[in-house]
């Protein structure tokens, strides 16, 4: 895990950005009057990753994404996208910002036809993206008759029209039911499989934790940390109840290194993941240590966030998983 001020060292500034840095923000600041919404934000999104942009409501996420799209002009600092200044015409960027705006009197298909013209995308893309978001059946209906979830899906379809290199999704699961949220997650995986880079903003921890490679945590417009999810969550912890404890500690330290082993409250706390559990257990048994319990514990992003900022994020339970923490271990979260 890196503190905020160290995260962008070595990344290229505008004009010299290497192609594998898809988005480079350098000291981005946006003020409205005396109110600073985004404060000296520097971060880098690399090609092919799903990048989570995490923070509570009002943290400045949407303002930052608007700057990345060139919709707003930074007060200071720069935003470079695909090696060019943010908002450069024709950039291969698709975006869904907040609740998407569409023409209520047009059908979903006609809305996309209009946008395809604006994107310079071939007309055939309209039906392709309608299929991608499973809206083909309702494509001829007026947008004003769509449910919230359908509106959101049409927004995702619009973001994909030009087959972009970079897809920016601002709270894409807003208004979606659990099945819709699962669909978005599957879509994100297909996008990255196709070579897309995805920036996903959310105030929902479960969402970011499960799909993102790296995250930036922002609070009050400032970058709190930029890191991989794995690093951010810290090394996972195995809690081993064993007898005798001192021998268990020695054996485990010999296996993983002393710095990863601690005795706390009568149990062994080992910084290790589930993949290490079996060999630790085997080593302990072979050393005549009686293992009476072995369980894994994980920090969640919420715990990390609380530690770093003292403020709360909205913790959404994963829609398709039970709520026990044991089901939200990071090894399942980190792809």
């Amino acid at each position: 895990m890196q503190p905020a001020h160290e995260t962008t060292g070595g990344t290229s500034g505008p004009g010299t950005a290497v192609r594998d840095d898809v988005v480079v923000l350098d000291g981005l600041t946006k003020r409205y009057g005396s109110r600073t919404v985004v404060d000296d934000l520097s971060l880098t999104v690399r090609r092919g990753e799903v990048y989570g942009f995490l923070g509570p409501n009002g943290a400045g996420k949407t303002t930052t994404l608007r700057a990345v799209l060139g919709l707003i002009r930074p007060t200071s600092g720069t935003a470079t996208v695909l090696g060019r200044p943010a908002g450069s015409p024709g950039a291969q960027v698709g975006a869904l910002i907040e609740n998407p705006g569409f023409y209520p009197y047009l059908s979903g298909r006609d809305n996309l036809r209009v946008l395809a013209r604006y994107a310079g995308a071939p007309a055939g893309r309209v039906d392709a993206v309608l299929g991608t978001v499973a809206l083909t059946d309702r494509a001829g209906d007026r947008y004003s008759t769509y449910s919230l979830g359908m509106k959101q899906r049409l927004g995702v379809a619009a973001a994909l029209l030009k087959g972009p290199e970079l897809v920016i999704l601002d709270e894409p699961t807003n208004g979606l039911d659990p099945a819709g949220i699962t669909d978005v997650r599957a879509l994100l995986q297909r996008l990255t499989a196709d070579g897309c880079t995805v920036v996903l903003s959310s105030h929902l921890l479960g969402e970011v934790e499960q799909v993102c490679d790296r995250v930036a945590v922002v609070s009050a417009g400032r970058l709190v940390v930029e890191s991989s999810v794995r690093d951010l969550l810290g090394l996972r912890r195995l809690v081993v109840a064993a007898e005798p404890l001192d021998r268990a500690a020695a054996v485990t330290a010999g296996l993983l290194g002393a710095e990863r082993v601690a005795v706390q409250d009568g149990v062994l706390v080992v910084q290790a993941g589930a993949e290490d559990a079996a060999r630790i257990n085997r080593a302990l048994v072979l050393a005549d240590v009686e293992v009476t319990g072995l369980r894994q514990e994980a920090q969640t992003l919420e715990e990390v966030f609380l530690q770093m900022t003292g403020s709360e994020l909205a913790a959404a339970p994963p829609p398709d998983a039970p709520h026990e923490r044991a089901q939200r271990l990071p090894q399942g979260a980190v792809r």
């Binding site: 090609r47 991608t132 196709d194």
Partner: peptide, 20 residues
């Protein structure tokens, strides 16, 4: 959201053409 996305696969590292 069931069919392929149909997005283009950019070649890593190679500069993309000047966008129009």
């Amino acid at each position: 959201m069931s069919t392929a996305t149909g997005t283009r696969t950019p070649q890593g590292g190679s500069p993309s053409p000047e966008p129009t």
